[in-house]
Design a binder for these strands. Structure first.
Length: 214
DNA sequence: ACATTAAGTGATT
DNA sequence: AATCACTTAATGT
């Protein structure tokens, strides 16, 4: 992909990045990477050398506890970046989260060296990073709220809605077991709650399929 | 037709 | 709400 189209990608998807010189550098150093749906992009414990800007698709971000249980945290969507990767890069820590491509996804990866340099070089870049942090923290607080205060049925519905929003498709293709893993619940509980939602007319169920109706 | 995997159910804690 | 022990249903070979 040539630099001009990368520049226009950035302008199109990252409206907060406005400095022409910065955009030029992003196109200069950025590398396009694509991932197939379901592909693991970053696993726990791996070192991160790049900061991704999500151009297309969606990335699912998961946290794993010491017993190997996974918990869904949030999605990164078009126009998002991953503040966690940013922190990991600059402090050369290992990743404490796992990221999986929710669907076929294209990201522009930026080398840690420039990402670091740009902070002092471009006010616009610093602002962008801060905004990304702010947004992510808000998202995380929402997730914490849902775990701490929401009942399981509300949490499940929110999960379904999030997924539909992230993928842009109203029919979710996953098993009850997979959902249960993401929510840290039992498969039976998820099945029963989904059944309730179906009775209420909120969703339509099928094997490996959940259609969100409203 | 058979085996495998997903989903539904009731009882128990 | 989790776990267990099943049953039933859908799907692939």
């Amino acid at each position: 992909m040539d630099k001009e189209s990368i520049e226009s990608w950035v302008q199109e998807h990252f409206s907060q990045i406005t400095d022409p010189a910065l955009i030029k550098e992003i196109a200069e150093y950025g590398l396009i990477k694509t991932f197939k749906g379901g592909e693991i992009i970053m696993d726990y414990g791996s070192y991160i050398r790049m900061v991704p800007l999500v151009i297309k698709g969606a990335i699912k971000v998961l946290r794993e506890d010491d017993q190997g249980r996974e918990l869904f945290l949030y999605y990164l969507q078009e126009g998002d970046t991953c503040p966690a990767s940013f922190t990991c890069c600059l402090t050369s820590k290992r990743s404490f989260i796992k990221t999986v491509a929710e669907e076929d996804t294209t990201v522009l990866t930026l080398p840690v060296k420039q990402v670091d340099d740009w902070i002092s070089k471009y006010r616009n870049w610093k602002d962008f990073i801060m905004m990304a942090y702010d947004f992510r923290i808000m998202e995380l607080v929402q997730t914490i709220d849902s775990i701490a205060f929401m009942r399981m049925d509300e949490r499940l519905l929110k999960y379904l809605e999030d997924k539909v929003e992230a993928t842009g498709v109203r029919t979710i293709q996953s098993t009850h077991q997979e959902i249960a893993w993401d929510l840290n619940a039992s498969r039976e509980a998820v099945s029963r709650l989904l059944k309730k939602l179906e009775d209420q007319g909120t969703i339509k169920l099928g094997r490996n399929r959940i259609e969100l109706l409203k």
